[in-house]
């Protein structure tokens, strides 16, 4: 079996956000797992995520970043709960002024991919505000 990171990273590189899906119990699964954490069957495939969700919380890293991330500062991290009722940690696109002042807890957000080179460098899902 291929590493479960591969289909996920490959989709991110094509500008797509995918989720695991359990065919046995029709459950979306995120983060990807070796077996379905609900019914424990192995019948897991991949589905396209809606990309829409709400921002549960976010942080803006300015100092004390892990090694290799200093050049990225400041950068924002957010926990997003998707419409499929699963959640993940991602990066947030800055506002026009380079800050994140327009973001708030429970704000609607949507997946907005980074360029393939960036995803190759850092396999992360990026989100932006979704002014519904």
């Amino acid at each position: 079996m291929a590493a479960i990171t591969e289909p996920y990273y490959e989709a991110l590189g094509r500008g797509r956000l995918v989720l695991q899906h359990c065919k046995a119990c029709d459950q979306a699964v995120m983060y990807p797992r070796h077996r379905c954490p609900v019914c424990h069957e192995r019948d897991l495939g991949w589905i396209s995520a809606s990309g829409r969700g709400v921002l549960l919380s976010f942080a803006v890293q300015r100092f004390g970043a892990p090694s290799g991330f200093d050049a990225d500062t400041p950068y924002a991290l957010g926990v997003v709960r998707l419409a499929e009722d699963v959640q993940l940690l991602g990066r947030l696109w800055p506002d026009a002024d380079g800050e994140w002042n327009a973001y708030a807890c429970d704000a609607p957000v949507e997946f907005h991919p980074a360029a393939p080179e960036e995803v190759l460098r850092r396999p992360v899902a990026w989100f932006r505000l979704n002014p519904r």
Binding site: I4, T5, Y31, P32, L56, S57, F58, A59, V60, Q61, G64, A65, P66, F69, D72, Y75, L77, V79, L88, L89, G90, R91, A104, C105, D106, R122, P123, V124
Partner: peptide
């Protein structure tokens, strides 16, 4: 998780910040 979150640049202070932001909200 090294596969799903480490590449985002998550630090432990950011973990604390995510909790603080939600608590304050």
């Amino acid at each position: 998780p090294r596969e799903w979150e480490k590449a985002s640049g998550l630090s432990f202070n950011a973990v604390g910040a995510l909790i603080a932001r939600r608590y304050m909200a």
